[in-house]
Design a protein around this nucleic acid. Sequence first.
DNA 1: CGCGTGCATGGCT
DNA 2: GAGCCATGCACGC
Length: 845
Amino acid sequence: MLLELLDCGGINCATCAKSSGLLPIASDERPSEFGMINVRTGELQSSTTDNHFDSDEVDKLKLIRLRSSTDDSGLGQSLLTQYNDTNRSHEPTNREGVINTPSALEMGGSCYLLSSKASNGATHASQPDILKANIAAKEFDDPHARTDLSMTIGVPLGKSYPSLRDHSTTPSLSPQGPKSRHVLHKPPKPAFASGFESNASVVSQIRVARPPAEGRGRNQLLPRYWPRITDQELQQISGDSNSTIVPLFEKVLSASDAGRIGRLVLPKACAEAYFPPISQPEGLPLRIQDVKGKEWVFQFRFWPNNNSRMYVLEGVTPCIQSMQLQAGDTVTFSRMDPEAKLIMGFRKASTSMMQDSQLAAVSNGNHSSEALISGGFENVPMISGYSSLLHSFKGSTDPQLNALSKHWSSASGDISWQGTEKHGLPRDAFLLPGMSAPERKRARNIGSKSKRLLIDSQDALELKMTWEELQDLLRPPSVNPSIVTVEDHEFEEYDEPPVFGKSSIFILRSTGGQEQWVQCDSCGKWRRLPVDVLLPPRWTCAENAWDQSRRLCSAPDGLTPRDLENLLRLTKEFKKRKLATTVRPALEHESSGLDALANAAIVGDDGDPGTTSVAATTKHPRHRPGCSCIVCIQPPSGKGKHKPTCNCNVCMTVKRRFKTLMMRKKKRQSEREAEIAQRKQLWGSKDEIEVDSTSAHRSSHHNPSENESRIGNELESQSQTTNSANTFAETGKGQINLNCQLDLNCQPDRNEDLKLGSSQTSMMNLLRVASQPLETYLKQNGLASLVSEQQASPAGHVQLQGATTDNEGQPSEDHCADSEIQEMALEKDDTDEKDSTPDQGEGDP
DNA sequence: CGCGTGCATGGCT
DNA sequence: GAGCCATGCACGC
């Protein structure tokens, strides 16, 4: 059905939207993208004109989330209600702020709304498009026929998305600058408004929840299970095939579904409507084909449950893994007629920056299992989270995807909903003898519609991490900010909103070389770029100015599927570990999988610790050229040695701290001596020279005799390359932990440790140590590398030899570990996947 | 102890 | 209030 845009002359501005009942609506997946819906009629509309909003208006934009598509009222009413509610409360849903991120959107629900309370004359649309939509107005008359609308228009996210809150002093996270500096954004100027350009992909990106195909109990299916297929998909799916794809239902994966148990709970009504009837709890093996043509067999069964049934698909883990799905992602079930073959598609939640495929169709190709799981992505364009399916299909040279379209019979929403009545089809088409499948674990909670879905602290942290990751993607406006200081916090205030850059992967080679890998938004292939390249939100091979041979999408992928798999996996592992590190801050002593990774990276493939330095990392991905933090100013690994006379920042810092330490000790020593002398005067001298350095504020478990013995073994213990480092870190006493001292990544608490440790050290020993030249001390303590051979290592990560397994949570290493992990990912193949996988490393003591 | 299975429970619609 | 379903959990291997 064609919906004509109402001619109100101003429907594209929210002012008019209010008066005309039109609301701009943004997609759940494409928050920046913009459309309109007529809340009175439910008609879906949009415009392709620029300057929908003027600056003042934009400033008042709020993000509003629709409750869900399951409102009891029709969508129009729902929208209207939400709109009114929103007008009463100006609290933006997105409290985080400056930019509404996919994360935030993911947390909510299915449909988002942008509205505005602008009251001035906004620039109106000139001539709106007429959209094709698969919505019949009459559906809104039917309370059971609600349509979950979301519209996407191909607008680059960062370009168009407004500041969602007032430009108050509330800081946002900043990827750059000092910690106390925050980024603010002034009200978007017309530069923003002009971002509302839309394009020809308007039509095909409308995502519509469609009433399900015929089936038993179709009317009872909750709308949230209705398959949502974008009009874009439908339009793109042209086909001369005899096959017809009939979307059946879809389900957002719960943590349980995506978890290790491998059981996907099926909505009862859907299972009974579209899957073969089963009478025994054991059920039947069900053959389901995925989007890449791979056939899976799941056990379709049920459990008796309160006089009812609970249907599940068992053994879905491999499939879910292969699709890289997790909780919050959506799986779709369709039927290919006339074969009556069950098809399982998926739609990723939008936060998956790494790869966000959105495929709902299937090919008839036959991929091997291995190709699917490990190498399957070689041939499947990985559609960036912000690139459209349209683009992906258009740009794809993949015969698989082309094949996909053949099976879709509908264009412009004319899908055959009536389709073939399933029950008239041979159900055996799905059936197969059962088979088992291995599992891997993965589970993550998602946003909350219920208590169970509330993110716990872990997940909140993960969300936080996601936010932090997002910061990496923020591209500051080109114009220099004005700096405003508010309560000792510096804020960078920009006239323009930031934009999202495209995510990429940074890799550190054992040779010291750093690379950045980015995925083409068009073909999905990975290209290598210099590390300092800032990526725009969308990037294609054509923009590859650094490698002429790979400026075309037809050029082979720069990453082998294996590389990619390793990278993605290890990146995820790293993320997990980073999270764990955050949860268990600096007091973590056991050697973790991260240690194993780091150590493996340290050792390098050839096992020569020298070639790949301890801290082969210099500039971590978060930092950009020009960053002057301690990490980034370190000399690159392997570049030159630090001479004793070196005056570089790192060496100076080391020396300065050492001197400070020694001065402090000497001062204490003199104080002690004075005190001792005083005591002798008072009580006649009975005290020994050996002084308990304990003072009121010192560790209560200090034991002088123990100290002595420890000190006696100090050099020996420090030169060990075993887990004594753990003890070393744990006790923090009896030894001067230069590891802390030398870790220049500015961990104040480590300095505290240092004080504590040193204060508990025998005075004699202190005297002895303090009297030594720095170089002597370092050498005696196994730190000769710092003086002479170090040098392959940036001092920020110089570690005691015996401390290479000392993790301590090491937030300071996180940045580096990232690269190290990724380095490993690429070099793992070279080592023939020996034993350094994170999982294996995790269990290592 | 870890894992898979078969429910059982209880929050939510 | 009934039913759904996400998840917990006991039990057995």
